[in-house]
Design a protein around this nucleic acid. Sequence first.
DNA 1: ATAAACTAGTTTATAATATAAACCACATAA
DNA 2: TTATGTGGTTTATATTATAAACTAGTTTAT
Lengths: 94, 94
Amino acid sequence: MTKLNPILHQELRLSIISFLVNAEWVDFMKLIEVTQASKGNLSVQISKLQEAGYIEVKKSFKGNYPHTECRVTDAGKNEFENYLIQLKQLLNLE
Amino acid sequence: MTKLNPILHQELRLSIISFLVNAEWVDFMKLIEVTQASKGNLSVQISKLQEAGYIEVKKSFKGNYPHTECRVTDAGKNEFENYLIQLKQLLNLE
DNA sequence: ATAAACTAGTTTATAATATAAACCACATAA
DNA sequence: TTATGTGGTTTATATTATAAACTAGTTTAT
């Protein structure tokens, strides 16, 4: 059996990665916008993806406000591709 | 945002439904074989799919042994189709 | 200047979930 | 007749997901 990557097989994390693979640096509030998640939830899931090494997180200030940006890593891209392959297999897609 | 059906967005339940949509009545031990799940886990997830109305469960005896068979319901098929659509959208597939 | 409201997050308490281990009722074999 | 196997179910535990509460500051209005 396939055994889907459990870090990726979660809706919010999947939404995040899925968006990031087609983008460059994306900031926290943009991710809030596209995922419609709560800030707390987003914060936690970003940390998990970062700990897994799937995304890179850059913190700075934009004007006077804190500013967090994320970008998918090569490892993240690979795992995501892999996840897609296994998921398609499980679902008999393609 | 899409909000994936949480009953379906779980690996084992997804494996079960995904197999059942291309089959008729399938028995417990066959599902163990195709999913490689433990009996306990399979039992629980079958119950959840049944409670959700996504599968129908028929219990009988085969020889002297208990025998459990499952079949996807129309509702189950619909929800599964829906899940696929939303998932593809989330993942930018097709 | 001070309070009120807002920005951009993080931490943490709680509930929900997933999973395997332990169990059950019975059957068959030794 | 006891030991092993079948086909499950129940339940204890750990893990996870999530929103509420909080932090640390900023801007605006008074």
